[in-house]
Computed example of a mutant assay.
Amino acid sequence: MASAALAACGDAPDEEGKASEKNDFLPCILSDAGGFDDKSFNQLSYEGVQDAAEELGSEYKEFESKNENDYAGALEQFVAQGCDAIVTVGFALATATKESAAANPDIEYILIDDAADGGEDGKTFDGKPDQPNIKPILYDTAQAAFLAGYAAADYTKTGVVGTYGGQPFPTVTIFMDGFKQGVEHYAKTKGKDVKLIGWEGNDKGVFTGGFDANEKATNAAKQILDQNADVILPVGGPIYQGAITAIKDSGKDVALVGVDADFFETDPTTQDLVLTSILKNMKISTTEAVVQAGEGDLDFSPYVGTLENDGVGLAPFHNFESKVSDTLQAELDEVKKGIVDGSIPVESYLNQ
């Protein structure tokens, strides 16, 4: 089954109708159960591999997982089909990636959203992957989420904002931690009372138990909205679709905050709802890592995206530009400077 799902994509013909010169380097990418059309991190990583293959003049292979049972078999197929570099997308693939990397030291692995380091809880980060042929790509999204929390606290009319996640993995709760800190920073500096529901910290919050856009995702969002929240941050790929359903069912004026990608661009159905999005520039960092691997120059030290290196960021307000306060963007610019220079500390598992 894994073999049948693997796809190879070749170079497009040039203007004269002849195929461009091929590079025999073969990158491959394995999604998590969210799939490549999740409008989020799987899609961005997939586009990064596509861009890298085009730049290198090579083919690439892909496998879209349906569930966690696909991971090990798909990696075995990649090895059998001669993949030179394998991109695995998401912390859920960490164990399978480390096992495959240990068994195949001549293959280069690029693991997104996990340090490949330490315990299975994913909370250990010392900059030394368990296997020397794994390149971890990580994002300190707490920094960008801090800005989103500040913006949400400024925008709310009810004085209540909320968040919920798929499961309490560090790469999920890092968004919630940053969002919480941003809300608290706004309340403190402005002397205003803004309440955050759905996340208390230390794995205490509202979670759907998975990452599917199902009834559980809708009910979790409804639980937040029923407590008078008018800004909501769903963290976990497709679960934001449950929030859209809950918002529309509520009939209330509620703003959505996206994660990973700019939802306004990747999912036009959100354009009337999305206040902003917390960005991971995964497409660029994935492209760069695969190109480096193809050129024989991959640096295996972990990459950590931050506000300073543009690895994370905050999307424009788009349709909400006229709805936010006139001073908000300037305030966010100042807060960002403070985060970058360290005068405004933002805590996350990546900097403890």
Score class of each variant (00 low, 15 high):
G149R: 01
P105L: 03
T286F: 00
P170I: 03
E295I: 02
D70F: 05
Q223L: 09
A152D: 08
Y349S: 10
F41C: 03
Y71K: 13
E265K: 15
F317C: 12
K337S: 14
L111K: 12
G127E: 10
P129I: 12
K195D: 02
L225Q: 05
F78V: 07
T124F: 08
P170Y: 01
Q131M: 12
T218C: 01
I174M: 06
N351I: 11
K222V: 05
D253W: 02
K323T: 04
M1R: 09
F63I: 10
D249M: 04
K22I: 12
G34W: 00
D253E: 14
N104S: 08
V291C: 08
V346R: 00
G251T: 12
V231E: 11
G166K: 00
K18D: 12
E54H: 03
G237D: 14
G251Y: 10
F175L: 10
G201L: 00
G159N: 03
G182H: 05
D121M: 05
T141N: 13
Q43C: 07
Y303Q: 04
F211W: 15
V89N: 04
D37C: 03
E184Q: 15
S40H: 01
T189Y: 03
H318I: 06
V335G: 02
K188M: 09
Y186T: 06
S58P: 10
D212L: 15
I278R: 02
I134M: 04
D253K: 14
K188C: 04
E200M: 00
E47H: 09
V304T: 14
Y155I: 09
D310W: 01
P132C: 08
T156P: 09
V257T: 07
V274M: 10
E62W: 02
T218M: 13
P302D: 06
F300V: 14
V257C: 08
S277E: 09
K128D: 08
Y109P: 07
E331F: 02
L275A: 10
L307F: 08
E108G: 03
I29T: 13
M176H: 00
Q181T: 06
L279N: 11
I112D: 02
A293K: 04
L44H: 02
Y349D: 05
A19R: 11
I247Y: 01
E334D: 14
Q43W: 01
K18Y: 09
Q181H: 07
S348M: 05
E99P: 04
